[in-house]
Amino acid sequence: MANIRSVEDYKEFLKENRELLHKNAVRIKDLSPDDDWILDEEWDRIYEQEFFKHMKV
């Protein structure tokens, strides 16, 4: 993976890898309702933690 040190680096990485990211992405609506990944509440905690970490000014 690219050495990302700034927001601009990250944007460039996304731009350069857009097709690959789309190709490998999984839409949650395509997963079954009983999929372990959907049922795992750990993801909710991680997303919440990351959201609040980045919202601090």
Score class of each variant (00 low, 15 high):
Met55Asn: 10
Phe51Ser: 09
Arg45Met: 10
Glu19Thr: 01
Asn3Thr: 10
Asp35Ala: 11
Leu39Ser: 06
Ile38Gly: 01
Leu21Asp: 01
Val57Gln: 04
Tyr10Gln: 10
Gln49Ala: 15
Lys11Leu: 15
Asp9Ser: 04
Arg18Met: 07
Asn3Ala: 11
Arg5Gly: 14
Asp35Asn: 15
Arg27Trp: 06
Lys11Gly: 02
Arg5Thr: 11
Asn17His: 05
Ser6Arg: 03
Asp9Thr: 08
Asn17Cys: 05
Arg27Gly: 00
Arg27Tyr: 11
Arg27Ala: 06
Ala2Pro: 10
Pro33Thr: 08
Glu16Tyr: 03
Arg27Leu: 11
Asp35Thr: 03
Pro33Ile: 00
Lys56Trp: 02
Asp30Glu: 15
Glu19Gly: 01
Lys23Val: 04
Arg45Ser: 06
Glu41Lys: 14
Asp35Met: 07
Leu31Gln: 05
Glu12Tyr: 02
His22Phe: 09
Val7Met: 06
Leu21Thr: 04
Arg5Asp: 12
Phe51Tyr: 15
Asp36Pro: 07
Glu8Cys: 07
Ser6Glu: 03
His22Tyr: 13
Leu21Arg: 01
Tyr10Asp: 08
Pro33Asp: 13
Lys53Ile: 03
Asp35Ile: 08
Phe51Pro: 00
Asp36Tyr: 05
Glu48Leu: 14
Val26Cys: 08
Met55Lys: 12
Glu8Arg: 09
Met55His: 06
Asp44Trp: 05
Leu39Trp: 02
Leu14Glu: 07
Asp44Met: 08
Ala25Met: 14
Asn17Thr: 08
Pro33Ser: 10
His54Ile: 02
